[in-house]
Design a binder for these strands. Structure first.
Lengths: 377, 377
DNA sequence: ATCAATACTTGACGAAGTTAATTAATGGTC
DNA sequence: GACCATTAATTAACTTCGTCAAGTATTGAT
C-alpha cells in the first residue's frame, strides 16, 4: 500500500485531490513542510502512477525563475464504488480518485431483508467490477458507526444492529466503509464540492426530514451522544404544529415533506392532495398553498441561521429531494436566514440547489476515497 | 524553555494538568505513545521541577505486578496572572500551573481610556509580582483576535482596533495573551473544570447578553467569519419581542437582563422596577413577574437545546451573572431544554450554577497556561 | 554571456518516535 | 522461602521522517 507510505504522502494526495494540481513549492507551503520533503514523498507516488507531473508551466511573475512543474493526481489510477441504500432501491456509482462519477446504476430492492440487500449489493458490485474498484462505500440513513461498519438503527430499512460492513465485505471481498448518508454527502461536498478548501462547512438536506452535516475545524462533527446536526428539531415557533419528536414548532414539523402536504390539504380542504399536487397548485398561483411553502422555507432559513450563529461555517449548501420545489422555497429560505443570521453570519455564502440523486452514492464513494487517503481520520 | 522541548513533553504536561496524576503507562495509552517515549520525555520535566513522582502506589488488581509511581504536575513550579476587564473594574488573579487561584485582586477603573486601562493593568501586575508570574492572560468581552492580541471591538470599553496585547506587553514586560472573555471561561472549564476530559463541551453564559463558548473535537470553535456561539440570537418565537439585532423573538430579547426587567415592568405597571426588584417580587410570589422568569428560562433552555441538537457536546455548563436568579431560572431552563432536545441529546448533562466572578479572571489565566503548554493551538 | 530569481533535488544530519530486551517491584503458590 | 506470573519502568539499537545547506535546473532581464 504505497499510498500511506508516509504521513507526507497522505497529505500530498489529500491536498492534490481536494485543491487541484500544485507545484511542490506550493504544496510545501500549504502543508507546512519543506520542499525537500515533498520531493521525497512524491517520488514513490509518481512511480506508482498515483501522480504525474504537468509540464504545463504557467507564467510566473516578470523576473521569473525556473518554471514549476505542478503535480497532479492521475484520477484513473484507482477506482472506488459507492452505493446509497434507500428503502426500495440501491443507487451505485463508480468514481475515480477525484470523485468524478464514471458509471451510475440503479437496482430496485424487493425487500429490506438483510440477506436480500447484501445479495443485491454484491450483485451490483459484480456489475461494476470491470472498473477494478477494491473499495466500496455504503451510505445509509440512520445511526451508523463508521469505525465498525455497524448500522445501529435505520428507519427506512427497519434495521437494528446490523453489522453491514462485515457482511458486505465477506460477500464481496472488498474493503467496505459504512457511513450515515448525510455525513457521506457532507464529506463529498467538503472534499470535492463547494466546501472544498473550507475549514468549516455545513450541508443542509431538505426532504421528508431536515438534516444537517457539519464540518468544524476541518473535522466532521459527530456529537458525543451520537446526536449532531439535528437542525430538523430546532424549535422555531412555540405556536407551531406538533412534531413527532414530542415537541412542537420544530423545523421539520413545519418544513418536512409530510407536514407541508398536510398544511396544503388543510389550506385547500382537499383531503387527497399529494405533495406533487401542492407543488403544482403553488406554482399555479394558489395563494394559500404558496403561503405554506413560504412558511416552510422561512422555517428552514431560521434553522440555517441557527447553524450560522452557532458554528459559523465558511459555506452552507442546501439540497435534498425537497428542493425539487426549489423555486418555491429559495427566496423564503434566504429571507428567514437573513433575518435571523447575526452580524457577520449573514455574509456566509448560501448555495441552494437540488443535487442529482446519484450525488448520495457519490458521497458513499467519497467516504471510501477518504478512508484510502487518510488511514485514520 | 524546557517545557516545549518535545511534542511528547507538551502532551504529557497537558494530560497531567487536565486529567490529574497518572502512571507513565496510563499516559502512554492516553496519548497513543510507547511507554519508552514517556520515560524519555518526562525525565527533563522532572529535572526541571515541572513534574514529580508520587510514590503513592495504589493497589492494582489481584495478581499485581510492580506498582506504578504516577507522575504529577508540581503546580507551584510556575505562576500565571489573569485579568478580566469590565467597563468599570479589573479583576485579577494569580494561578498556579493547575489553574488553582492563589490571589484575587479588584481594582476600579475610572475610565475606559486605553492608556489609563493599560496603566492600571500594569499597576495590578506589580501588585501581583511577588508570585513571579512571567505570563499574563487578559479577558475582554467583544471581538478579539487572540493570535495578534488585537481587540477589534469591545462594546463595554468602546474600543476599536486596540493592540492591547502589545501595549500591555511593553508596559509590563510579560508575555501577554488576549482572548474573548467567554472563550477564556470556556477554556478554563474545558481544561480545569467540569468539561475536563470532554472531547466536546459548551459553556452558556446568562447575563445582559446570552453567550456560548463551544469546544468541538477538542478544539475551540471560532467561526469562519468571526461569529460563533451566538446562542442569544437564535429565533425561538416569531411572536416574541423585537431584538436589537433587527430580528424578533431572539433568546436574548426574551432572557437578557434588560428585556426581563422591561417585561417585569410591563407586568407590574411599575416603571421604576429594577432587575433586583424583579428578583425580589418573583421570589415573594408575584405570579406575573414569576411568569417573566419562567418564559426567560424556557427560552434559554430552547437555545441550549439547539446547541445540543446541532453539535451534541458531552457536557453543558450554564452560568453567568444572570444566574444570581438561579432559583428562578433553573427549572424552566431544564424544562425548555428537555422539551426540545432531540433523542439522546436530552441525556447531555446540564450543570446550571452561578460561578464566582473571579472565575472570569481565572479563565484569562487558563488561556495563558494553555499558551504555555501548547505553543500552537 | 552573465546574473538574479525561482523550482527542484540531493545527501548528511537530527529529532522523536519505535521495538525488544532488561531491570524493578509486587502478590500468589507450592 | 524460592519461584513465578504480572505489571511498570528503563535502556539501547534502530526506523522514520523530517530539516538544512548546498547544488542543479530553467527561465527572463541586462
Amino acid at each position: 500500500m504505497p499510498l500511506a507510505a508516509s504521513p507526507a504522502a497522505a497529505a500530498i494526495m489529500t491536498a492534490l485531490v481536494t485543491a487541484g494540481p500544485q507545484s511542490r513549492v506550493a504544496l510545501a507551503r500549504r502543508l507546512g513542510l519543506s520542499s525537500a520533503a515533498i520531493t521525497k514523498a512524491a517520488r514513490p507516488l509518481i512511480d506508482d502512477g498515483y501522480l504525474r507531473e504537468l509540464g504545463a508551466t504557467e507564467r510566473t511573475g516578470p523576473g521569473a525563475g525556473r518554471p514549476a512543474s505542478p503535480l497532479a493526481v492521475r484520477p484513473e489510477r484507482e477506482y472506488f464504488a459507492g452505493i446509497k441504500l434507500t428503502g426500495d432501491e440501491l443507487i451505485g456509482v463508480v468514481c475515480d480518485l477525484t470523485a468524478t462519477v464514471r458509471v451510475v446504476e440503479h437496482r430496485p430492492l424487493r425487500s429490506a431483508d438483510v440477506e436480500h440487500v447484501v445479495g443485491e449489493i454484491a450483485a451490483m458490485t459484480r456489475d461494476l467490477a470491470g472498473w477494478g474498484a477494491r473499495r466500496l462505500g455504503l451510505a445509509v440513513s440512520g445511526d451508523v458507526d463508521r469505525s465498525s461498519g455497524l448500522v445501529r438503527y435505520s428507519p427506512f430499512l427497519r434495521w437494528h444492529d446490523i453489522t453491514l460492513g462485515k457482511l458486505v465485505a465477506s460477500a464481496t471481498g472488498l474493503t467496505v466503509t459504512v457511513e450515515n448518508d448525510v455525513k457521506a454527502l457532507t464529506t463529498a461536498e467538503h472534499w470535492f464540492g463547494e466546501g472544498a478548501g473550507a475549514d468549516s462547512f455545513a450541508l443542509v438536506t431538505v426532504g421528508s426530514g431536515i438534516g444537517c452535516g457539519l464540518v468544524v475545524n476541518g473535522r466532521p462533527v459527530s456529537g458525543s451522544h451520537g446526536v449532531a446536526g439535528e437542525i430538523g428539531h430546532l424549535g422555531v415557533d412555540p405556536a407551531g404544529p406538533d412534531c413527532h419528536c414530542g415537541s412542537r414548532g420544530c423545523v421539520e414539523a413545519i418544513a418536512g415533506t409530510e407536514p407541508i402536504a398536510a398544511a396544503a390539504r388543510a389550506a385547500t380542504g382537499r383531503a387527497d392532495l399529494s405533495i406533487d399536487d401542492a407543488y403544482a397548485l403553488a406554482r399555479a398561483g394558489n395563494a394559500g398553498v404558496a403561503a405554506v411553502f413560504a412558511r416552510a422555507g422561512e422555517a428552514i432559513g431560521l434553522g440555517i441561521a441557527a447553524v450560522a450563529n452557532l458554528v459559523g461555517p465558511a459555506r452552507i449548501v442546501v439540497s435534498g429531494e425537497g428542493l425539487a420545489a426549489y423555486d418555491l422555497f429559495e427566496p423564503h429560505i434566504r429571507a428567514g436566514f437573513e433575518r435571523q443570521a447575526f452580524g457577520a453570519a449573514a455574509e456566509i455564502p448560501l448555495s441552494i440547489r437540488p443535487l442529482p440523486f446519484e450525488e448520495w452514492a457519490r458521497g458513499a464513494a467519497a467516504v471510501s476515497i477518504q478512508s484510502r487517503l487518510v488511514p485514520l481520520a
